[in-house]
């Protein structure tokens, strides 16, 4: 009964049921444990290549997907593990992909940077900064033309907001009033270059003005704030009123990728952001509003731990792709 709640009740507490809120927190734990499991597997040499971890950005991914169903689409980024989990992917198939196995979401052809789950509406992470933006607009064009009612959420980072694709995509989404929500996860750095040094505007959300769409900046480590902004933006898209830009201010605790020596930011800055852990804040909010007890929350975390341990075991035991099938799936029908 939202109207019986005190005025300062956070949006998410009023909007979602206790079960939905606990499921959201569990997903945040699942992302955190997934990233930690992936990092450990990488360190132990079980995963090759590189990866971009989203530890610290869990509220942004999960909060942004709260208003979405399986028919809705997302496009994701090179830092896309969290989005994939948030949209409902099976972490076993995700780990299998990271381990390069045939049982992975991309049958071992994509890896971390192209993780996708098309059945759940995740059209894929993208190795090209800004690559997903026009694709998201295309998915929204399909939804509008085919009348599916689906909304597309387009995740990208602060780095992408200086790509031409960002500007072209926002403009087209606006002129055609397409059902798409652009979610800029601003974690302050495009690799090593800060937004202060790379971006002419102080707030990326103000770039929405140039494309005549609403733009808001939210605390991306506050689950409730993210879900509130997304609720409005998704409702607007679903109602046929067009796109929005949501800037989610967050921070990656780890470096850009495995090659990062963290020369461009201070230990103090990292510690400051770690003190604003989105998972701790979500857990505290649920306890404070009587949604969950500390014991229940410990249970959610332990459950996520177990799921990740099982997922890694599943991945380890999977079959490698057959080398003879290296050119499979280049085309839908085999071509000589």
């Amino acid at each position: 009964m939202p109207d019986l709640l005190p005025e300062n009740t956070p949006f998410a507490i009023a909007r979602y049921t206790p079960d939905e809120l606990k499921a959201a927190l569990r997903k945040m734990y699942l992302i955190r444990k997934f990233e930690e499991g992936a990092e450990e597997s990488y360190t132990r040499g079980l995963i090759h290549g590189t990866m971009h971890l989203s530890i610290g950005q869990e509220a942004s991914a999960v909060g942004a997907c709260m208003a979405l169903g399986d028919a809705d689409k997302i496009t994701s980024t090179h830092r896309g593990h969290g989005h994939c989990v948030a949209k409902g992917a099976d972490v076993s198939r995700m780990f299998a992909e990271f381990f390069g196995k045939e049982s992975g979401y991309c049958r071992g052809r994509g890896g971390s940077m192209h993780i996708a789950d098309v059945e759940k509406g995740n059209l894929g992470a993208n190795g090209i900064v800004g690559g997903g933006l026009p694709i998201a607009v295309g998915a929204a064009l399909s939804a509008k033309r085919l009348g599916t009612g689906a909304v597309t959420v387009c995740f990208f980072g602060d780095g992408a907001n200086n790509e031409g694709a960002f500007h072209e995509a926002l403009n087209m989404a606006a002129i055609w009033k397409l059902p798409v929500v652009f979610v800029c996860e601003n974690n302050k750095y495009g690799m090593s270059t800060s937004t202060e040094r790379s971006t002419a505007v102080r707030r990326i959300a103000t770039r929405a003005d140039a494309y005549a769409m609403p733009g808001v900046t939210v605390d991306g480590n506050d689950f409730s704030a993210v879900s509130e902004a997304m609720d409005a933006a998704v409702a607007r898209a679903r109602a046929g009123e067009g796109p929005s830009l949501v800037e989610s201010m967050t921070y990656r605790w780890r470096g850009h990728s495995k090659s990062d020596r963290n020369r461009y930011r201070s230990k103090e800055e990292i510690a400051d952001w770690m003190a604003r852990d989105p998972i701790t804040r979500m857990a505290d909010m649920l306890v404070e509003h009587g949604i969950a007890t500390r014991e229940e929350i410990a249970g959610l975390e332990a459950g996520a731990d177990r799921e990740i341990a099982e997922a890694i075991e599943f991945a380890k035991t999977g079959e490698n792709p057959k080398v003879a099938e290296v050119t499979r799936d280049v085309y839908t029908e085999a071509v000589q």
């Binding site: 933006l133 026009p134 295309g138 085919l146 500007h167 072209e168 403009n171």
Partner: peptide, 28 residues
């Protein structure tokens, strides 16, 4: 104009919209 769509002069974005639309059910 809903099926014969004039795009802005945005070759990268326009081509990408066509790609995304093709991935999700249209035949652009």
């Amino acid at each position: 104009t809903d099926r014969v769509i004039d795009t802005p002069i945005s070759e990268l974005g326009g081509a990408g919209v066509a790609v995304g639309a093709a991935m999700t059910g249209l035949r652009p």
